[in-house]
Every structure is written in C-alpha cells, then in structure tokens.
C-alpha cells in the first residue's frame, strides 16, 4: 500500500475517533432550546403560517434561504460553464419505446399538479418552494428521459429562473422601502390555515419554487444534452 493511502487511512481513523468521542461527550437528545422554544412560541401568531418550518425558512431566516437559492444558482451556472455545447451531428440515445413514453406522458400532468400543490401550500403543509420546485423539474425531465431527442427551451427557462429569483429579492426590497427592513413579511396575515394567509410567505414560496424548478430542469436538460460517448 502506498504511503499516501496509509496516511489517509490513519487520518480518517483519527477523525472518526475524534467525532465518536465528541458524540459520546455531547448531551444528545436533550438540546438546549434557547432559540428553538421561542420559535415554536412566537412563529404562529407573528407570521400566521400553519407550517412552522416554512415560517422559519422564509420568515425568520429568509435571508439564509436567499443565500441557499444563490448557491444553487451558482452551482448551475458553474456547471453550464463547464459542460459546453453539443455538436449538431453528435449521436443521441434512441427514444425509450412505447411503455416508457406513454408512462412519461401520464406522469407529466400528475407531477405538475403535485409540484404546484406543494409549492403553493408551502405555508400550510410540509414542503415548500424547494421541494415543490424539484418535483416540477422532475415533471419536465421525465419527458426528456423517455425521449432524448426532445429539448427544453433554455432561453425560456433562463427567463423564468432570472425573474423568479429577482421577484424574491424585489419582495425583500419592497419591504425595505415600506417597512425599513429587508424581507419583512408584508400584507395582512389572514386566517391561519387558509390558502391566502401568512402575508408574503406564499409569494416567496412561489418564487423559490419557480426558480428551483427552472434551474434544476435546465441543469438536468443540460446534462442530458451533453454528448454520449461513442462506443
């Protein structure tokens, strides 16, 4: 075994030991609820969202969510820089046959509806922009897998993605002008549990969903569009 492998093995073992010791020392299962309990107490009345996770993600820590959106965007942009373009005469995979394409056609509306439902109900039920967006992207990608000759309109996806991302930030800037703070929830809270409630949270959720969906669909289509190796 070369020296470098042994060194990495020793290092990994040491790190594992360190983490185990730390794990044994920690009071796992009895977290200090300094901030957590407070969220549980005030999130409902303050933001009017039935789903407290979304209240935290899009409300209290909405700025982090903006950062995470940007990370996904940076990854997709960097990938499209690396992936390059397909030659016009490059070989494509053949279509997937009757069963696969009929199944994909059946799945498409189903996935679309589920995705939209999860995005729009982000402030009420488990899920939200990120999860719903991924399902929306899958809806378009399944069709692409069944028939590799199909292509997605990248320019359109770019517009949806850009405008949805801009909408998130513009809602934040609107709050900065209106209320003096970036990303403060605006609009009346309404009745908790109804579709139109929780102020601007559902709008943010929709913006996240569209951005994530368009971005992932674009990225997957780009990956599928790279040239298959000739055998």
């Amino acid at each position: 075994m070369p020296m470098r492998d042994i060194a990495s093995l020793v290092f990994s073992a040491g790190l594992l030991f360190l983490l185990l010791v730390i794990g044994a020392e920690l009071a796992l299962g009895h977290p200090d609820m300094r901030v957590g309990a407070e969220y549980l107490r005030v999130a409902g009345p303050e933001l009017g969202a039935a789903n407290i996770v979304t209240a935290i993600l899009a409300g209290y820590r909405g700025f982090d969510t903006l950062g995470e959106l940007s990370i996904l965007f940076a990854a997709a942009t960097a990938a499209s820089l690396v992936l390059g373009h397909r030659r016009a005469d490059a070989r494509r995979d053949p279509p997937g046959g009757l069963v696969l394409s009929a199944g994909a056609d059946l799945l498409f509306p189903l996935l679309l509806v589920v995705g939209i439902f999860i995005v729009v109900h982000g402030h009420l039920t488990p899920g939200g922009g990120f999860q719903g967006g991924v399902i929306l992207a899958a809806a378009f990608f399944v069709a692409l897998l069944a028939n590799p000759a199909r292509t997605l309109n990248h320019a359109l996806l770019g517009w949806i993605e850009g405008l949805a991302g801009a909408a998130f930030i513009l809602i934040g800037l609107w709050a900065l002008v209106e209320d003096g703070h970036f990303l403060t929830p605006l609009l009346p809270l309404g009745t908790m549990g109804e579709l139109v409630s929780a102020g601007t949270l559902p709008l943010l959720s929709v913006a996240i969903g569209l951005k994530v969906g368009a971005e992932l669909a674009g990225l997957l289509a780009h990956l599928a569009d790279t040239e298959a190796p000739d055998r």
């Binding site: 903006l66 965007f73 770019g158 993605e161 850009g162 991302g165 801009a166 930030i169």
Partner: peptide, 13 residues
C-alpha cells in the same frame, strides 16, 4: 443583495 439581483438577471439581460 443588489449583486445577487444583478447575478440572477444577468443571463436574461
């Protein structure tokens, strides 16, 4: 925030 906004809108622009 503004550089993020500009980055999102860069490709459509």
């Amino acid at each position: 925030v503004l550089p993020l906004l500009a980055a999102f809108l860069m490709q459509p622009l």
